[in-house]
């Protein structure tokens, strides 16, 4: 282990201690590993060990109290045969495939225009960033109120005042998922806008000025200069927001707390299913198997995105 070589620094060169006899490069290595040892130890204990343990657990039966008994591939067989799992699987990808592109486009459009605004720039930026800093639980409950029926809900009151029949948002199996996705997208926008604006700022002004002198349209500038040069920013945001949407939990849980993931599992994402399997059914082995599936999905999606969007 690297901790064995952590330098003491107490030996003086004249005594010819082990440390003193090392070359400068070796001493540097000793220090580097000395510092790295702390986070490595932390990651091994806090991250890698539980991850490995969960993978082992996915092949076992365990109810938290009794013994862990070997179950082989039973958990995975149950999973494949479970219609709820496939519903949840579809939901998870619906969050991903709707959430990532929508949030990407909205945050880019806002960042692009905000970048050109000088008046109250800081204030407007802060307003967009505010949802990101707000607790997801509080936000979910406020949105839940927005979605209520007449005469409580904000949206339905607005619809009613212009004579449109009210819409059942959270109690409809078709509307509930988009209704939960909306605040989730909104909450993440501030962060994505900040990242996009940093990316936009990094493009030299003379690139735009040269294009202006060449007289190309602003559409061409957007597609041929701005977006290609934002590629690293876009990759970063796509990967990060994809992981975020694949792991969506708190918005769903708080907006459907009477029947988490409902109605009829229509909003239930994988993380919520794992939570219920583990802490409502106490079926730890089955939950671990689901976790492994989620891990594989996250890994595969991220790798595909990185490969597709890599700089060619």
């Amino acid at each position: 282990m690297p901790t064995d070589t952590t330098p003491t620094g107490s030996q003086t060169p004249g005594r010819g201690g082990l440390y003193a006899r090392l070359s400068v490069a070796q001493k540097r290595t000793v220090w580097a590993w000395g510092f790295l040892a702390v986070p490595i130890l932390f990651y091994v204990v806090i991250r890698f060990y539980p991850t490995g343990n969960a993978m082992v657990l996915s092949f076992q039966e365990w109810n938290l109290l009794g013994d862990r008994t070997w179950a082989g591939l039973d958990n995975y067989r149950t999973l494949v045969a479970d219609p709820v799992f496939w519903q949840v699987f579809r939901n998870t990808f619906a969050y991903l495939l709707l959430g990532t592109p929508i949030s990407l486009v909205i945050s880019f459009v806002i960042a692009y225009h905000l970048d050109q605004v000088r008046f109250l720039h800081g204030t407007i930026r802060a307003l967009y960033f505010l949802p990101f800093m707000t607790s997801a639980v509080a936000m979910a409950w406020v949105w839940r109120w927005f979605y209520q029926d007449v005469p409580i809900g904000l949206f339905n009151n607005m619809l009613a005042s212009v004579g449109i029949p009210q819409i059942s948002f959270l109690r409809s199996t078709t509307n509930a998922l988009p209704a939960i996705l909306a605040p989730a997208i909104w909450a993440g926008l501030g962060f994505q806008i900040i990242i996009f604006m940093a990316g936009l700022r990094a493009i030299p002004r003379s690139f735009y000025e040269a294009a202006k002198i060449d007289g190309v349209s602003s559409w061409t500038v957007l597609w041929e200069i701005t977006l290609p040069l934002l590629r690293p920013t876009i990759v970063f945001i796509v990967v990060l927001s994809s992981i975020g949407f694949l792991r969506i939990f708190d918005h769903v849980f708080n907006m459907t707390s009477a029947d988490p993931g409902g109605p009829l599992n229509s909003t239930k994402p994988l993380v919520l299913m794992i939570y219920q399997t583990a802490f409502s059914s106490y079926d730890m082995g089955y939950a671990a198997a689901q976790t492994v599936v989620l891990f594989v999905i996250l890994l595969v999606v991220s790798l595909i995105q990185l490969r597709l969007l890599r700089d060619r």
């Binding site: 003379s206 690139f207 000025e209 040269a210 041929e224 200069i225 040069l229």
Partner: peptide, 8 residues
């Protein structure tokens, strides 16, 4: 331009 403004 001073920084050439050629597109990378």
């Amino acid at each position: 331009f001073q920084n050439y403004a050629i597109y990378p």
